[in-house]
Design a protein around this nucleic acid. Sequence first.
DNA 1: TTAAATTGCTTAAACGTTAAAGCAAAAATA
DNA 2: TATTTTTGCTTTAACGTTTAAGCAATTTAA
Lengths: 333, 333
Amino acid sequence: MKKKKVSLKDIANELGVSATLVSYVINNREKEGRVGKEMAKKIRATAERLNYKPNHFARSLKNQKSRSIGLILADISNPFFANMARIIEDEASKNNYTVIIGSSDERPEKMERVLNFLSSRQVDGFIIVPTENSQDQIRTLLAEKTPFVLVDRRFDDISCNSVMTDNFLASYKAVNHLIKNKSRRMGIVTYDSDLNNHKDRLKGYLEALKNNKMRVDQQLIKRIKYNQNDNDIYKCVKSLVDERKVDSIFFTTNTLTLKGLKAIHNLGLKISKDIEILAFDNNEVISFYNYPVTQVIQPIEKICKESIAILLDLIENSPGKISNTIFEGKLSR
Amino acid sequence: MKKKKVSLKDIANELGVSATLVSYVINNREKEGRVGKEMAKKIRATAERLNYKPNHFARSLKNQKSRSIGLILADISNPFFANMARIIEDEASKNNYTVIIGSSDERPEKMERVLNFLSSRQVDGFIIVPTENSQDQIRTLLAEKTPFVLVDRRFDDISCNSVMTDNFLASYKAVNHLIKNKSRRMGIVTYDSDLNNHKDRLKGYLEALKNNKMRVDQQLIKRIKYNQNDNDIYKCVKSLVDERKVDSIFFTTNTLTLKGLKAIHNLGLKISKDIEILAFDNNEVISFYNYPVTQVIQPIEKICKESIAILLDLIENSPGKISNTIFEGKLSR
DNA sequence: TTAAATTGCTTAAACGTTAAAGCAAAAATA
DNA sequence: TATTTTTGCTTTAACGTTTAAGCAATTTAA
């Protein structure tokens, strides 16, 4: 049998005072509660002695606030999102919020399930990496006036708070950089997706080619389904290299890069010598082997901090204004 | 302003009945509450229509159970533990439990902080990967009769529930396997740690050498501090290869393996041709490049499922018995 | 045909907390 | 000195849920 937890009442009884008085002191609101100095000291001492820990359930029930937020990621096993989770958790806990994490696995039905689950856990708001085709769920949240912020992706036709990298600009600058460094023929491997972040990355590529007066060759654009297997990417890379004779390849996500590097490795190609690689985001393999790869580094920390800031503002002050924040990405190596 | 949530009372008022009645139906305990069939049907319909979601805080407050468990990992950024988190979360949610994750970062003070934090969130119990020197915290939990299970590691001098791989046996079998496959001189790179899992892995290595009548050379045993930098491992590997002329190296954790592989790569050595590698656990680099590495694969899923089973049994039935479960690891490749 | 059991519901209290309102006694102001 | 204000506390009610106890009306058993 677990020992019963110490409650406000226990402290109150110990000192022969009311629970209200103790509550004020515990919450450092003795001024407001007009608690005497002596008494406050005694209460604090007793709370310490009995090892009092406030009951968050009672508190949340009374306050109608849980001080917890739901974080819905597209894919928890992707290190990019895992990293995001870590930062958001840190940032939230600085503000005394707990984060409950859910993963939608890139499927709108799963996202709805997770939303419902977290909502039944009374989270005060959400930070969401929305999946493709989850517009309905987002609209429902808007209708319910649930506080939430989209990160990493947004929908052009839904007006709501969002925070992300300027994917178009980052992509444009990166591709431009490679062209200036003498890439004459660049292939791109991207997801076959409606999500605006992927579309923007492709747009950046196209715009950079155009601005450098290079012809866009549709054969150099490889679109991969989400549920691709490694072999699909291998084939794309092989085709780009063998048939299309590219001198560089742009992989638009970290997972694509990982699989792409494997293909390049298996094809016996040497990066820098045989081919230049441009990658969105970092990954373990690149950093471990110090592959000479040009990377777009997203300001994840900024993104996470900003989204928490916006969300907490929504929760605590609920102003009606909507902001779509974008941060610039950085090129590295 | 967020719309107010629907409560039992709202449903009750809608139908002109008492909240109690609704509660019984919602919890599928209409038999127990002797609720009429017609009424039950009406209540269910109304609950559905109003999109009723039970308030977990009120429930937990009343029941003195939160249906949530605290998971304290040694290091959330280690994929081994991240994977564990995923499985435990899955398993818990099958049983309608929520998991709140904390990371001790291998430091006992941090572990204590996380324990306190989760405890103030009224978790019903803990699954813990204990850090070195956290015996005091574990003893406190025992004294408080808080339900908990240790995973991956335990302390020989504390009697409590634990679930892990048979590290000694797995290590013994793996080393033995390499010796049978003609390794004549095997180095080992392990953590300089008091944790029993690391000690057992070293013991397995020693025992396998002994059983094969091979001399134990202390120079072949490299102990690394937790806060090592990559260079320390590089030096160890270089020393083993250049000075000690080993024909194989045993890395006893996935992080050591990752850094070790990098060292081997940088030394220009070819695995299988120049050196054989034995690794505890899988990692992204091995699986991505299909390195011909002999691996000990821990039955993480079994471990997680068993620890959840034990914990929930403790929470829900609280029998006094203590079990120290060990599962066999598997060799692969 | 009467007593006992069952059915279908309600009321009241409790979980631990907080907020508003209230009430003496002491202190400040007139 | 009489009145107002301040200080230091208490009481009450509420958040949404569950549980025990209770109470008529109906059904079953004796």
